[in-house]
Design a protein around this nucleic acid. Structure first.
Lengths: 141, 141
DNA sequence: TATGATTACGTGGATCGTAAGGATT
DNA sequence: AATCCTTACGATCCACGTAATCATA
């Protein structure tokens, strides 16, 4: 099996062929050429080292190995897209950790409302609060 | 983000760069050219839509988004390799379901040993046993 | 100044569409 | 006979190595 030639795109191609039961409709749905789709699935099968589809019947059916692989491939695609989404959110500051130093004099008045508003807008950012006064104290000894 | 240009190979490239802290050693470990690795990581970052590495310091460090993404990418690669392995085993008959029709006359003598031996050799094959006699009965009515 | 990342460039090979040829029902 | 999977062919684009250039420490 040629692992380094595996592409995410090919997994989606195979999923589309399976769900449509034929190459023609799958190619239309994917907005690519039918002959090209056929070759790409052949390439995927060659890379994996086993057949995904049984071509001797129509509509096409998955082989046993194809069933085992494709059901997991769908999860893998979902997880990958999710990983990208989480990383984008981290990039945009909607996720992660934020250290905030506060002045105790306002801590008991306005702070609760501020925090509540922040949490609503950025539920996945972990707020870490420090009292400003305590940071200025000299270490003991 | 250009999902359909994403390749598994590129995830491993990024993981190698991170674990080595530099492109040069990562390229040697991957047995590819250093300039080529640099371009492939740039391409991966362009496809993802965010930077993975901070180049302004050496050794290189992951960005926050890079950390979020790469830790998940490692799991995704592992799951994908596992899915292929399971499918290969299905292909080779080491996994799956096997229907067996048996003659009741030997059912109580040799069968338990046979089944035990089979289970030891193919622990992931699900055995489904049928009595031969019952299959020959005419349906009621 | 030494190490190492990026860019420039060339060639062999792959991608993808168009269209013809073979299977399956 | 109709559907549709596979193969042939050609143009464009990309992969990947070599080597020069730029940036970090």
């Amino acid at each position: 099996m040629r692992w380094n030639e595996l592409e995410f795109r090919h997994l989606e191609y195979a999923i589309a062929v399976n769900s449509h039961g034929q190459f023609l409709q799958a190619a239309l749905a994917l907005d690519i050429d039918q002959g090209f789709l056929s070759k790409q699935i052949q390439k995927l099968e060659a890379n994996l080292g086993f057949q995904l589809f049984d071509r001797t019947t129509r509509p096409l059916r998955l082989t046993a190995a194809g069933q085992t692989f494709l059901s997991r491939a769908e999860q893998i695609i979902e997880q990958t897209k999710n990983a990208i989404k989480l990383a984008e959110e981290t990039q945009d500051g909607k996720r992660g950790r934020l250290n905030v130093s506060i002045n105790t004099s306002i801590a008991n008045s306005k702070l609760p409302d501020i925090i509540r508003g922040f949490r609503e807008q950025f539920p996945d950012v972990q707020l870490i609060l420090h009292e400003l006064a305590s940071l200025c104290k000299k270490p003991p000894g």
